[in-house]
């Protein structure tokens, strides 16, 4: 069947696959025919994602526990992956603080987790020649890279930094035919928002969403799949907003 969006035969590494958007992306990629390598820190939750991966295409999925904040762990992850057609740099954290209370260790924690971890993994994969010619790198940024709200400085700053790095990868890897792009989700129903927002804040936030609902992890996964597939062969360095119309306001 004609399908330029298919991932059949591609091997895709997904970080943050033990939860939320990463878990949905891994499962949806497997349904699109990919061999998926899932990675995360929490073994129990990662195993759950792994068990949900579609195996009907005879795919050979792999699960690797790794802490992206730990250099030894990253090296071992890079060692274990074969040659890749796609990477989804999706792992991320949040820490809500007013700017006047931010300390160096808050800054280090959020920028390390959201920006450096993805840059370091991608850099290492390139250096070890794990990315095939014409492969695709996708970063999960956020609408916060373009927009701010009280207490979100660390998150917004780290996602803006990540987005700038994405464009640098796009420029510097273009002669290998490797593409780099970002998705920028608005509020998606995952544990990340359950832990950071009160019920009242959620109700108020909903009014900002023209399509009148928050995202499902799959809404973001499908945008990521487009950027991983050959359908986006002429798309690099771009930021794709997936937000139910939030940025229209």
């Amino acid at each position: 069947m004609y399908n330029p969006f298919s991932l059949k035969g591609k091997t895709i590494l997904v970080t943050g696959a033990s939860s939320g958007i990463g878990a949905a992306t891994a499962v949806e990629c497997s349904k699109m025919g990919a061999n998926v390598i899932v990675t995360g820190r929490n073994e129990e939750r990662l195993k759950k994602t792994f068990d949900h991966l579609d195996i009907s295409f005879g795919a050979n999925h792999l699960m690797i526990i790794a802490d992206l904040a730990d250099e030894t762990s990253v090296n071992s992850l890079v060692e274990q992956t074969g040659i890749l057609d796609g990477v989804v740099n999706n792992a991320g954290v949040n820490r809500v603080k007013p700017v006047t209370f931010i300390k160096q260790d808050d800054f280090d924690y959020v920028f390390q987790s959201n920006a450096w971890a993805a840059v370091n993994l991608t850099r290492s994969l390139c250096r070890k020649k794990k990315l095939r010619k014409n492969s695709s790198i996708v970063f999960t940024s956020s609408v916060s890279a373009f927009f701010n709200a009280p207490g979100r400085a660390l998150y917004a700053g780290s996602k803006a930094a990540l987005t700038a790095f994405m464009r640098s990868f796009a420029v510097e890897l273009s002669d290998k035919g490797i593409r780099a792009n970002a998705v920028h989700p608005g509020l998606v129903e995952t544990k990340l928002i359950a832990e950071n927002l009160t019920e009242e804040e959620l109700q108020n936030n909903l009014k900002e969403y023209p399509l009148n609902r928050f995202g499902k992890p799959e809404d973001v996964a499908w945008a990521i799949i487009y950027l991983l597939s050959d359908a986006s062969a002429w798309v690099t360095g771009t930021s794709m907003i997936v937000d139910g119309g939030f940025m229209l306001k």
Binding site: V96, K97, P98, T100, F101, P150, G151, L197, T198, E199, E200, E201
Partner: peptide, 21 residues
Amino acid sequence: IIGLTLIAMVDEEFGVALKGD
């Protein structure tokens, strides 16, 4: 915003992570 500031103050002074609720 003052609510957020109070949460940050409590974190700094008491090492306690209050929730918005």
